[in-house]
């Protein structure tokens, strides 16, 4: 899945990536928007910046999130 800026997403699972830290478990179930889609161009392995409702903006691995269909 390629995430675009403005995609509405859900953090639906913990990531298996090294970049996943313990406190990020608090984000599971949160909804938010993709703010900065890629650190390098369209790399599925790149960390993407997401703004999560009530949890702030964080850079997370892509395997923890899924698109919810809307875009702002």
């Amino acid at each position: 899945m390629t995430f675009q800026r403005g995609d509405k997403i859900e953090i639906f699972q913990a990531s298996t990536d090294d970049a996943w830290e313990d406190y990020m478990n608090d984000f599971i179930g949160c909804h938010g928007f993709i703010v900065d889609p890629d650190t390098s161009v369209n790399d599925p392995d790149a960390l993407v910046e997401v703004s999560l409702e009530g949890k702030g903006t964080h850079r997370l691995p892509q395997d923890c999130m899924r698109r919810l269909g809307e875009q702002v």
Binding site: D36, E49, R59
Partner: peptide, 12 residues
Amino acid sequence: VSGPATVIEAIG
């Protein structure tokens, strides 16, 4: 830390 990212992220 983040790889090439945003200015506001760096400031934060």
